[in-house]
Design a protein around this nucleic acid. Structure first.
Lengths: 152, 152
DNA sequence: AACAATTAGATTGTGCGCAATTGATATTTG
DNA sequence: CAAATATCAATTGCGCACAATCTAATTGTT
């Protein structure tokens, strides 16, 4: 059987959407790095702060569900945010298995300092907002289909 | 000033394309995991093998440029592939700074076993090939614009 | 030839990301 | 009410990912 043309070969790196997504995620991370360095945050820490700026005083589980991360990732990350005085971790009195994460005043205050981050990213994307929104919706739909397969 | 509507708030998690990309990358990784476990590879190791299946006997630098990874990531990864008898690492005699990566017979043979991986991913994506190609091209274009910004 | 600058890869340290396990707590069921 | 089951956070171990630093080799300049 003849070898497939490289532009159609599904085993070629450049033909794989997953590599496109994987390498785009790293590219975003590199653009974020200098912006987040000024806030003293890593990108995953920034994501946790985004969640908390929307709603405060939530269990670790809830944060994990929103970010698709488990406690093995979040526990040490949250301890670092606590060490940086941005969050407090307290056991729930209602359900003592749960650890509730609340923002400190510094944690709340950081939201203002972070306000300019999204527009810096938008500028780096060099793309219209409507195009980005359309892409975002497509990618989210793909992600959700993939996640649906994982849960059988 | 009035607070922005949440559907337009650029500081909201769900409005961020970078989180869409980030979480989609993780979702892909979770779909790949059981497929690659059978090959004894992690996803980044699989990417390196894809590069080598296209062209063999290349310096570490070339692999890094294709995958956007540096030696701090690749050196230990390649040592693990060597320990698994999939690649050989040899100093170039022409330029002794370079380490050339070549496939072993087992490394070549693994390509056949990996042939069904892309179509499994395609099935999990639950999406037409043409749609995926279009998305991939958009994401690659975005990634390249982001990478262009990083190099000033 | 001498010396500076560049390049390739290795090393170290920090921080994810996730599977597997543990232990505590809550809920369900007999 | 008590035992079995389920749930949750924490812990452990491995493998990226990258910045910063180091060593060695090559190239460029004079």
């Amino acid at each position: 059987m003849a070898r497939k043309l490289s532009t159609l070969d599904p085993q070629r790196l450049d033909n794989q959407i997953c590599f496109a997504v994987y390498s785009a995620a790293h590219a975003f991370n590199r653009v974020y790095k200098p912006l987040l360095d000024r806030l003293g945050l890593t990108y995953p820490q920034y994501l946790v702060m985004l969640v908390l700026w929307e709603r405060d005083d939530v269990p670790v589980k809830d944060i994990g569900e929103k970010l698709f991360l488990d406690s093995g990732t979040l526990t040490p990350l949250l301890k670092r945010l606590e060490a940086a005085h941005l969050v407090r971790r307290t056991r729930s009195s209602e359900d003592e298995r749960q650890v509730l994460i609340a923002l400190t005043p510094q944690g709340h205050a950081l939201k203002e300092k972070a306000r300019s981050v999204p527009q810096s990213i938008l500028a780096a994307s060099d793309c219209s907002v409507s195009e980005l929104v359309a892409m975002k919706d497509e990618i989210v739909a793909l992600r959700d289909r993939l996640n649906a397969v994982i849960g059988e």
